Simulated assay, not measured.
Amino acid sequence: MKRLASFRVLCGLVLFAAGLSVAVAAEPATSPEKADEDFKFQGEYAGTLNRDGERTEQGVQVIALGGGKFDAVGYHGGLPGAGWDGSDKVRASGQLKGSELVIANAEGDAKAVIRDGKMTISVDGSELGTLDRVERKSDTLGAKPPEGAAVLFAGKEADLKNFKEGARFENGGLREGFTSKQEFDDYKLHLEFMLSYMPEARGQARSNSGVYQQGRYEVQVLDSFGLEGADNECGGVYKAKAPSVNMCLPPLQWQTYDIDFTAAKYDGDTKTAPARMTVKHNGVVIHNNIEVPAGTPGGTQAEGPGPGPLFAQNHGNPVFFKNIWVVPKK
């Protein structure tokens, strides 16, 4: 049991800066080629550990903080949405040392070392096991629009005609800050997005955008990889509902939102029923037919009757979108 206890001590070391806002010292990286040396260590690791003769699945998310410093979050049973049993997460901190990332407890009897895409965890010099770096992809990535869909962006600069002035095309993607010309009532939305890599930023300064249904109700877009999964983090319905599980993948990986949206109902100017939505983030349901009691500040219009556009907020951080289509509900 000492090994298990020491492992928990290791994972309990916390360098927790998720809620802080600090100045960004480097330009956001919009491709792996533009990222720093820390980028190749950041990501998800999964595999089997042998703890006192018991083999258990383990997932770990490693988050770059800049300057060779990292957070690590452990999940018993596997990664979020892929085996994690929902038990308490364990957090640790690490430091880059040469070509290795080393995470160790204060006593030095437990450590994890990442080298060449593998995380080896040991206690008292004995290995518990090795986790492999994995790159998950959403089941709905690349989904094809069905018949009757309004295809807003299919990866071509010519698709800018579907958006109001100010929409930007870059490297095959649509940048944050767009507003669709077409407006919608009830619908199903598919879109894909990629967060920029901003390791020295914190909290709301870390690759921030947001997708507004009807220009009124925001589903947050943020680099929340490894964070708690609050309502103002990726997948949250801003100021209304936190996601049931934080499904945010690391920056510079394409992610998906699939949103089934039902508009608020009005009798004249009197609201008789709130808006509702079901949200899948990377193929996993994180909101199931929830009520959205009010509109979100910062949209294109206040809550009210009538249709509205698809709007992606611009917070000054590079965020890329692609494969955007809407199926109106009859």
Rank of each mutant, 00 (worst) to 15 (best):
M1P: 15
K2E: 14
L4Q: 11
C11R: 10
G12C: 04
L15P: 15
S21T: 14
V24G: 12
A25H: 14
A26K: 13
S31D: 00
S31R: 00
A35S: 07
F41E: 00
Y45A: 00
L49T: 02
E57C: 06
E57M: 06
A64F: 05
G74I: 01
P80H: 11
K97P: 02
G98D: 11
S99P: 00
N105R: 01
V123L: 01
G125T: 05
G125A: 01
G125F: 02
L128D: 06
T130G: 10
R133Y: 00
R136Y: 01
T140S: 12
A143E: 14
A149F: 06
A149Q: 11
F169M: 12
E170V: 10
G172W: 07
L174V: 05
R175V: 02
G177Q: 11
D186T: 06
Y187H: 02
L191V: 13
E200H: 08
G203A: 12
V211H: 11
E218C: 07
E228W: 12
E233H: 04
Y238S: 12
A240R: 13
N246P: 09
C248V: 09
D258N: 11
K271S: 03
P274H: 14
H281V: 14
N288E: 14
P293A: 13
T296E: 08
T296P: 10
G298N: 09
E303P: 01
E303C: 01
A312K: 02
P318M: 05
K322E: 08
V326I: 14
